[in-house]
Design a protein around this nucleic acid. Structure first.
Lengths: 235, 235
DNA sequence: CAGCGTGTTAAACACGCGTTTCAATCAAGT
DNA sequence: ACTTGATTGAAACGCGTGTTTAACACGCTG
């Protein structure tokens, strides 16, 4: 009967602690087992709170799920901000930065892996609560990528074609995260590391795109060429 | 207590009917709702059989799931066979055929969409039962693609680089199926059709790869160029 | 101190699930 | 026609789930 919204908790940082713990535990459980298979009991056990807490703070399981997805996204969003570009930054460099940024967020080095996994579930089977997440978060990034590509080809491709190229770039990054387990079965063990480390992947995807767009030489025999667009000391 | 295996049903085509119906209904339910959310009751209701039938034919829910995944795969496998190539077929043509074939299987035109959706779930979260599916089915295709690419660049790329390119190609096709709903949110309504129809997509992916590998001109201003590699009358 | 709201706890509830049971039915074999 | 085994039918059983309840502990206010 007691209605609790986030603004109340923002005023009381001491009381916000169990709420945070529940959100974190719920995110992990939902990401690992899926919505149906994850149980409120396990979540509360992992969070170290009583079974009734989830109902007290969130009302029911579904609203807990929605909040945990948002929570995971908000944590992720601030962690890997886009680099700052000056007016003179060449589009090739922007593209490399964007791809590196995208891969860093998707493969999530040094960050808890369940956050992305949770969002991947939403991508595969969107729920009402998270369509807004696409609007607020995914679309701006997508639009940015399209504009970078537009600058790169200097208006020589239509918007339709630009979107296709953008989806090609995203798809190449996407497959490593979404189908990561299958990828791990397909490539030799010793090669896996290079397939899942950031810089070689980003170089490959960027070089692949630049070559396809005629903004760089073909991939064949051009292994090191795009290194000029890479910042050496990554943050 | 009664053990029933498929060989027995193969001898009695009349008795094989309910088994097939259950498999089909189960595949649909599992694909739509996921393993946990799908209920045996709904499956039996949709199949028009009694609740006890699933236990009689398959033992329990898990074995029904495994069998339904295999069943969906086997149906799919025979439906879209790879085209026959002669010794003189150029690798560009092979690549275009392969990509078209991959997209046709993934986007599944004119075929029940739940079969692919079911397998997508497995790709995202592989279960024990379906790792063999990767070995028997995915790996041969992947190896074939790598060999086509190898023939295309005539040994000028290492196996590691070839695998990366292969994954890039697969990723581009993959994203349209796995993240199809999100893609639908990102591109304008009227453009959706062209993004989800086979020939333009296959042309784009193939052209993108050929351009990146230096086997064709860049995408910019080369809209129609790869049509020479496309068979006009697709089966 | 009494009153009250906030947070927490343990126990219980109602429901839907996978699974089992057992009798009824059907199709041959002899 | 009777027997036998395979198949189907309806009902029930446990069990685990999400959710609710009511009692309790604490801190603050008047």
């Amino acid at each position: 009967m007691v209605v609790v919204d986030s603004s109340v908790c923002a005023e009381k940082p001491a009381a916000a602690e169990p709420r945070e713990r529940i959100l974190s535990a719920a995110g992990q459980e939902f990401a690992e087992r899926g919505y149906e298979a994850a149980t409120v009991r396990d979540i509360c056990l992992a969070a170290g709170v009583n079974l009734a807490a989830v109902n007290y703070y969130f009302g029911d399981k579904q609203r807990l799920y929605i909040e945990s997805v948002k929570h995971a996204h908000e944590q992720r969003a601030g962690q890997v901000p886009l680099p700052e570009w000056t007016a003179g930054t060449p589009p090739q460099r922007k593209l490399r930065d964007f791809v590196g940024n995208l891969l860093e967020r998707m493969l999530g080095f040094g960050q808890p892996p369940w956050q992305v996994r949770l969002m991947m579930r939403e991508v595969l089977h969107p729920t009402d609560a998270c369509r807004e997440l696409v609007e607020d978060y995914v679309r701006p990034r997508f639009t940015l990528l399209v504009s970078i590509l537009d600058e790169l080809v200097d208006g020589r491709l239509s918007q339709t074609e630009l979107r296709r190229v953008a989806l090609s770039i995203i798809g190449q990054c996407f497959v490593y995260r979404a189908a990561g387990d299958v990828v791990a079965m397909l490539v030799p063990r010793e090669e896996l590391e290079s397939h899942h480390s950031l810089a070689p992947l980003a170089d490959h995807v960027t070089g692949y795109a630049l070559a396809a767009l005629g903004e760089a030489g073909p991939l064949v025999g051009a292994h090191q060429r795009i290194h000029q667009f890479r910042e050496e000391a990554s943050p």
